[in-house]
């Protein structure tokens, strides 16, 4: 029992250390590709933290959407819009210091408030029900029932939003000149570059 708790604490500390250092690296690293990969580390560690917090479905969704989609998209965008080396100036001006101080003060205030709040008094429903209904199947089933029962209209609106956003993104990112040139060259010599003919 003691050993398992020790392992649990060790893994938790490792995950939190990954989040702490990875987020700092995502912000502070000079090379943007390195910070994109560091962001992937942060997303993976947050997904593992969701597993610890008994939110299995959200952890899987986080791993799929963030690490699998958004991070890959970010890495591609970084690679396409690569800055020439040296244009990212590392000069730390007065604004940098002011922002760092402001964020440190904000974090201090937030952690002070978190420490000084009696969270056990706040819980409206008694805290005993945390781990009683925590099995995987029932949790995911209840999530599905609520998502398609009580929250069905926001769910469908969300699908419309995703469709509109993706169509808009493709329309924005499409290079129209290259598209026209490609169509002309394809119309003039359709089989010229094909390896099948």
């Amino acid at each position: 029992m003691n050993i398992s708790e020790l392992i649990h604490d060790f893994v938790l500390a490792l995950v939190e250390l990954g989040i702490l250092l990875g987020s700092l690296g995502a912000v502070l690293l000079v090379n943007t590709v390195n910070s994109a990969f560091s962001l992937g580390l942060v997303f993976t560690c947050i997904s593992l933290l969701y597993f610890v917090l008994n939110a299995d479905f959200v952890a899987a969704a986080q791993l799929l959407v963030y690490v699998g989609a958004i991070n890959v998209l970010t890495v591609f965008a970084v690679m396409i819009t690569d800055e020439p080396a040296g244009s990212e100036t590392t000069a730390r001006g007065i604004g940098y210091i002011i922002t760092a101080g402001t964020c440190t003060i904000l974090f201090s205030i937030l952690s002070f408030v978190i420490h000084n709040t009696k969270w056990s008094d706040l819980s409206l429903i008694p805290q005993s029900g945390i781990s009683t209904s925590g099995t995987l199947g029932s949790n995911v089933q209840q999530l599905g029932y609520k998502l398609l029962g009580e929250f069905v209209i926001p769910f469908e609106l969300l699908s419309i939003l995703l469709l509109a956003a993706l169509v808009g993104a493709i329309n924005l990112a499409r290079n129209e000149d290259a598209f026209i040139v490609n169509k002309k060259s394809a119309a003039s010599a359709p089989y010229k570059n094909s390896t099948f003919f």
Binding site: L53, N54, A55, F57, V58, A61, Q62, V65, Y66, A69, I70, L73, T74, W119, S123, L124, I125, P126, Q127, G129, I130, N139, Q142, L143, K146, L147, F151, P154, L158, L161, L162, A165, L166, A169
Partner: peptide, 25 residues
């Protein structure tokens, strides 16, 4: 995770993830 009806927070988290995906794209 603190409260008893924990599905609502997870559903809102899923919504936030989907909106973040749209925003990133």
């Amino acid at each position: 995770n603190l409260f008893d009806n924990r599905e609502t927070g997870e559903i809102f988290t899923l919504f936030v993830i989907a909106v973040a995906a749209a925003e990133a794209a």
